[in-house]
């Protein structure tokens, strides 16, 4: 009996939610979600009466929800297509994927064609590209990871086509592996690679198609493997507290949070 009373109390505690009019619901891309969640946490601490709800479900759900106004804001990890001009995108960050090698590899630049050959094991030794006589160790990410998707899309490869030696989860693990294995090549978010290089990792970001991989080239859109991280709104969206949050999320005030998640700020 006492147990029942306790659990009823507990249930009521969960139902007791803040005022509906101060809630903002955000749905969509699982790449953008952690970023929005962090921004939301900061925003909530500055505006204690606002509650922001972040849910994932993929970019297409983000677009659909914003279009049908089932949520206030959608999250989309790419640029909008022409057919999607009925909703309004707001750029909050960019995600650049850099090609990284162990510093034992004396090569500084790669072409798209050679990169494809490396990931298909058609080049197995760095000497074939004029580098040292070292076996190539291909480091790949687990299926579904956002960096893996962007990378494979750039090379127009299917996940199962890639001939990897090591598969790894997040950026940090990939960098640790590249750092300790001579001849290793992998790909990680450029922000993460730049950070580890500052910390003294034995890794090196390669130039791709003649363009250096830096946060700057990602920010100005010249670096080839990158994508936009957008939030999208229905033009009919007129709640002022939602618009204020969108303004905040896309402003330079959130740059620190954007960098802490290895993304590149939209406004430098």
């Amino acid at each position: 009996m006492r147990l029942l009373a306790l659990s009823v109390l507990f249930a009521f505690g969960c139902i007791n939610k803040p005022n509906q009019s101060n809630r903002i619901s955000v749905t969509g891309s699982s790449t953008v979600a952690p970023l929005i969640a962090e921004i939301a946490k900061e925003y909530e601490s500055k505006h204690p009466n606002i509650r922001i709800d972040v849910q994932t479900g993929g970019s297409s759900r983000g677009i659909l929800d914003a279009r049908q106004q089932t949520s206030d804001i959608g999250m989309v990890s790419r640029a909008l297509k022409p057919a999607e001009n009925d909703i309004k995108p707001v750029l909050i960050a960019r995600d650049g994927v850099g090609v990284v090698v162990n510093s034992s590899v004396t090569i500084d630049a790669l072409s798209k064609a050679d990169l494809t050959k490396l990931y298909l094991k058609k080049i197995q030794n760095w000497s074939e590209l004029g580098g040292p006589d070292l076996k190539v160790t291909v480091i790949h990410k687990a299926q579904g990871r956002s960096t893996a998707e962007v990378f494979l899309e750039y090379l127009s490869l299917q996940y199962t086509n890639v001939q990897a030696d090591i598969i790894i989860g997040d950026n940090e693990q990939a960098i640790k592996n590249i750092d300790s294995i001579p001849g290793a090549i992998g790909y990680v978010s450029i922000g993460a690679a730049e950070y580890s290089m500052k910390q003294g990792s034995k890794i090196k970001l390669l130039e791709l198609e003649g363009i250096a991989a830096t946060t700057k080239t990602v920010a100005n859109g010249t670096y080839p493997i990158s994508r936009e991280l957008n939030i999208v709104l229905n033009p009919k969206q007129d709640k002022t507290h939602v618009q204020k949050f969108v303004e905040y999320a896309s402003s330079a005030q959130t740059n620190e949070i954007v960098r802490s998640l290895d993304f590149v700020p939209a406004k430098l």
Binding site: S30, A142, R145, D165, I166, I168, G169
Partner: peptide
Amino acid sequence: GNIIKVPLSVFDPIRTLTSNIALEMAY
């Protein structure tokens, strides 16, 4: 190494059940 393949020697990469969950669950 986490390559999905039945290992034939101790020098082959393996993926365990738990690694598989950790690597793929998020997506």
